[in-house]
Each structure stands twice: as structure tokens, then as C-alpha cells.
Design a protein around this nucleic acid. Structure first.
Lengths: 224, 224
DNA sequence: ATGGCGTAGATCGTCAGTCAATCTGCATGA
DNA sequence: TCATGCAGATTGACTGACGATCTACGCCAT
């Protein structure tokens, strides 16, 4: 009789294995800021908090380490990643061609279920902005970009997303607290989706690149 | 008193943790064909063969599963990945812009240590071809492409490489047995490196894309 | 007083043994 | 013949423990 699943933050997760469940909960904790960049993670502590054994927790952590969300130094411990400005630029550079590819794939069927998924993610994000909940806006912002990668229906892009997404998320976490211009954020993402819908390849590529460049530039400015 | 490290294939691996050691050994076993596409992996068996406990082995497997080299189905088991034609095409599509990016970065300093590394990898590959050892030629072929990704000095590309490289490797494993034209293989890779050295961006992009396209096409033809 | 060094505590890495959950294959009966 | 159910095999997960390694504190020599 498993007791009801309880996350670090109180939500519920369904998954066929505990390991996946734990990974999901930790990812969520990262998203909500319950685990902050640079924060040290102690195995026994976290295992207890999550109600799993250390071996199981370690399998989960292994996965997140591999995604780059966590950093592991043998015998020293695990801490939440804290990318340098250089690393953020690097991620952005790789992200551009891939997110462009995803957008171009989506544009091939602007009325299909894939774009519906993206539009839905946009709608949710706009609603979150509207509500004034900065945390929710952050989560749905990542969610929109994830949807673009996910709905492009490429297994390889799906596997790469966590590597990129975790860094994007951490980068934006810094930004989140001082989130200054929700209107502009809403406008930019509406435009991004509209450009994809319209389907002109060159315009899409330019828009995606510009979107990413602008985003990383803002974060880097705030970091310095 | 740890006894001397013995791989599945008899080599020696140095690493600060057993987990990394085991991951490396399994990767090597995949490269050498000791573990073949589709093959089932039994935990107790493999743990015993590698001389580690099940939890430690499971942490290693977790990592390889995440890289896509292995596939895990809850309660059914783990087997070596066996990508479909569709998946191979998908990997190739993602691989193109990234390997192009890596090549372009290398081209910025054609006389630097990075390109030295690539040239060295090419030299090793050519030697392997010369020697007539098909297995070694396969390993060094992957090694050359890995060098291109690695020497580009992008942490993000380095993190993505295993995801792509494992699929490339598996795809070429199919090919390996019937490796038919070593001369052509040598010529193509010599040319690839030369084009990077010469540094014309458009030519590099075209050459890398052509190289990848040709490679995946050949594999797919042989698959059908 | 200050700086290098060694020891103690904390934490991680790893192991062995055990039990529960789930899948697979075979035998059984309608 | 086909569905059903049981038994063996394998994975998923836990407990408890021990050695390996890092970190911090206190001690000693200068």
C-alpha cells in the first residue's frame, strides 16, 4: 500500500517507478526555486525528505547530474548548477539552431495538433503573466519553449531539451525576481508563435535567433 | 586492496569512482560489439561480470540509458538501443547543424591545438584503415567525429555528443561488418578535415552536411 | 600571534542481503 | 484453440553497514 505521493512542494506525481517520480519532484523543486542555484544537496537529508532510500535517490540524482541541472564532484557532493556567463552564452549558441529547427518543423503544419499544443502553452503562459504570479510566469515561460521542442516531434530534440532547458531555467531564475516588463514578455512570445504560424522560413529563423539572443543578453546584463 | 581493473574486454580503466569506471567499460563494450544492438542486459549477470554491486551498476546503466545507448522498460529490463530508420534520420538532422557549428568553431583557429587534436584523430583513423582492422577503423571513425565535437570547446556540445554519438555508433555497427570501401572512407574524412582547415564557412557547412547525409543514407540503404 | 599540519567528524561511494512488484512462459481447463 | 492462472525469473527498492574522501577545527612549532 503506497502512501499518497508527496513532493517537496506538496504536489502529486504519477510514474511507474519511484526513480522517475523523484526526478520529477526534484525538477519541480528546481523550477519553483525550492532548490536554488549553487545550493548544496545532502543525500540523506533529501532522501528522507522525499521518502526514498539513498540508492534510489542516487539513481535519480544521476539523471539530473547528467542533464546538467545538478553538478557532482566525487566525494564532495552535489549542488545545483550555477552556470557562468560564458556557459550561458554557449548554451544559447547551441540552442539557436535547434530551436529554429523545431520551429521550422512546427511551421510545416500550422493547423495541426502540434501547433495546437504550442498555442495552448502560449495561452497558459499569457494567463500566468496576466495573473501577476511571477513564479507561475517563469514556469510557463519555460513550458512554452519546452512545448516548441516537444511538439516538433523529434526524439533527438526531446532528449536534448533537458540539457538546454535546465540551463535556460537556471539563467531565468536569476532574472525572475526582478522580472520587470510582463507586457513586453507577453508581446515577444505572442509574436514568436505568430511568426511560426505564418510559416516563412527565413523570418522564423531570424525571430527565434533574435528571441534567444535577446533573452540571454538580458540575463547577462543583469548578472553583471 | 582493489584487484586490478578488468573490463568486459580486458582493458584497464582509471577513474575516481567505480560508477564512471563501469560506464566507460560498458561504452567500450558497445564500441567493440561485445554488447550488440538489441541485446538484453541482465543486471545480476553484468554486475558479477564487472565485479560491482547491483546499485553501482544501476547508477551506471542509468547514465547510459539517459544517453540513449541503452533502452530501459520498467520491470522488463534494459537492452542495447536499436534505432529505427526514422530515428537515425532524426539524429542525422539534429547532428548536421551541431557538427557544422563545431567545425566552424574549429575553423576559427586552423593552426591551434584544437585542430591538432582533430588532425591527430584523423591520423589515427587513417592508420586503422590502413591496418585493415575493421573494428579499430570503426572505433577511430567515431573517435574522429567525437574529436570534432570535443575540440570545438563548447561544454554544451560536449554534453550533447553522447546522445548523438551513441546513435551514430550503433548505426555504423550495422555497417561495420560489410565495410566495403576503406579507400573512399579515408578520402572522405581527409577531405572533411581539409575543408575545415581551409576555413570557408559555406564550404564547411556544405561538406559537413553532405558527409552526414551520405553516411546516414548508406546505413539506411544497408538496413533495407 | 600566526601559519602549517594532523586528527575527528561529516558526507559520499560502495557493498551485501533481502523483499516486493512486475513480467514471461508454460501448463491447465473450458 | 484460446483464455486463464500459476510459478519462475528479473527488476525495483529498502535497510544497514563499512571504507574512502573531504572539510574544519585545534594543536604545535616558529
Amino acid at each position: 500500500m503506497p502512501e499518497p505521493a508527496v513532493t517537496l512542494s506538496g504536489g502529486v506525481v504519477v510514474s511507474s517507478t519511484r526513480r522517475e517520480e523523484v526526478s520529477t519532484r526534484i525538477r519541480r523543486a528546481l523550477l519553483t526555486g525550492e532548490l536554488r542555484p549553487g545550493q548544496r544537496i545532502k543525500e540523506v537529508h533529501l532522501a528522507e525528505a522525499l521518502g526514498v532510500s539513498r540508492p534510489t535517490l542516487r539513481e535519480s540524482l544521476q539523471q539530473l547530474v547528467h542533464e546538467g541541472a545538478l553538478v557532482q564532484v566525487p566525494y564532495k557532493g552535489i549542488h545545483v548548477a550555477q552556470p557562468t556567463a560564458e556557459e550561458l552564452r554557449d548554451v544559447a549558441e547551441v540552442r539557436m539552431p535547434l530551436e529554429t529547427m523545431a520551429a521550422l518543423r512546427l511551421a510545416r503544419d500550422p493547423d495541426g495538433p502540434a501547433m495546437d499544443g504550442v498555442r495552448e502553452a502560449l495561452r497558459v503562459h499569457l494567463a500566468a503573466i496576466e495573473s501577476g504570479d511571477a513564479l507561475q510566469a517563469h514556469v510557463t515561460h519555460i513550458g512554452l519553449h519546452e512545448a516548441i521542442w516537444d511538439m516538433a516531434d523529434s526524439p533527438t530534440l526531446r532528449k536534448i531539451w533537458p540539457l538546454v532547458g535546465s540551463q535556460v531555467h537556471i539563467a531565468l531564475t536569476v532574472d525572475q525576481a526582478v522580472r520587470h516588463d510582463p507586457e513586453r514578455d507577453a508581446m515577444l512570445h505572442r509574436r514568436l508563435v505568430r511568426v511560426i504560424e505564418e510559416g516563412d522560413e527565413a523570418t522564423i529563423a531570424a525571430e527565434v535567433e533574435e528571441h534567444i539572443r535577446r533573452s540571454v543578453d538580458e540575463v547577462l546584463r543583469r548578472l553583471s
